[in-house]
Design a protein around this nucleic acid. Structure first.
Length: 253
DNA sequence: AACTTTATCAACCGCCGTGTC
DNA sequence: AGACACGGCGGTTGATAAAGT
């Protein structure tokens, strides 16, 4: 335990770490983060892995600025639930609690600054009191409701999410991983009904239980040390010479 | 152009709830 | 029932980019 903490890396994630993490989440699903942290050879804590995945690597994440509709939704739900960021995030597909939290803070700072400018002292409301500021920020509830409908809602919690990727796209990673998958057969998902043309990992990576039959793996899929060593010999950088930019090999065991 | 301020984003921390033994 | 491990959540911080002076 203590040793684990000592070797845990901190700070920004490198491309290679992202790649490793995405790959192992693809293999084992987005649970058991401590386990993934160990077998992947990443010198990161399970928590850190989870956070990176949830906030950055998850294939369903949207990128880029919040749309006005999303902004209104944030207002609406924040007025309902307060700082329940994860709950709000669930209503905004593709957005993370972290993202919403950041947005809110930024937004409130702006509002606070504006209020300082314009308001007389008696009218300044505390930005932390969502209900008080909400009335001015979000004066028309109907708009919010309308904006909600602007999503392609296919169910209470299911939206069709359009992935927007900017700059260095995660697609590149997904493609690379998907290609590399061909080289590795021992951990194929039980049901490979998700091989989509664009090879994003939303199928195999997301253990929607339809693609990853955990029931078959049971606790057995948790390898003991010996098995792990056999399957993932010295998981260090020497194991992953992966990601040579020519895209030749991913795993060189 | 140089410097300062503000905005944005990624990541960490600590607490808490839950499941397991 | 209690201890422990793990995952999730909300708060906070630090780095960097962008905008302003």
């Amino acid at each position: 335990m203590v040793e684990q903490e000592i070797i845990s890396r901190k700070g920004p994630w490198t491309e290679q770490e992202d790649y490793k993490l995405a790959y192992f989440v693809g293999l084992f699903g987005d649970r058991r983060w401590d386990f993934i942290a160990k077998v992947s050879g990443l010198s990161r804590s399970g928590k850190s892995c989870r956070l990176r995945w949830v906030n950055y690597l998850h294939p369903d994440l949207k990128r880029g600025k919040m749309t006005p509709q999303e902004e209104r939704l944030v207002m609406e739900y924040h007025s309902k639930w307060g700082n329940r960021w994860s709950r709000i995030a669930r209503k905004l597909p593709g957005r993370t609690d972290n993202e919403i939290k950041n947005y809110w803070r930024t937004h409130m700072r702006k509002v606070r600054a504006q209020e300082k400018k314009h308001a007389t002292p008696s009218t300044i409301s505390s930005p932390d009191q969502s209900s008080s500021c909400q009335s001015s920020l979000f004066s028309n509830n109907n708009h919010a409701v309308d904006s909600h409908a602007s999503y392609q809602e296919v169910g209470e919690e299911n939206y069709q999410v359009q992935e927007i990727v900017e700059g260095y796209s995660m697609d590149d990673i997904w493609k690379d991983i998907a290609m590399s998958e061909d080289d590795i057969n021992i951990f194929q998902p039980v049901n490979d009904g998700h091989s989509e043309e664009n090879c994003n990992f939303s199928g195999p990576i997301m253990p929607s239980t339809s693609s990853w039959d955990y029931s078959n793996l049971d606790p057995l899929w948790v390898m003991d040390e010996e098995e792990r060593k056999m399957l993932f010999p010295p998981i260090g950088d020497q194991y992953f010479s992966f990601y040579d930019q020519q895209g030749n090999t991913f795993l060189t065991g």
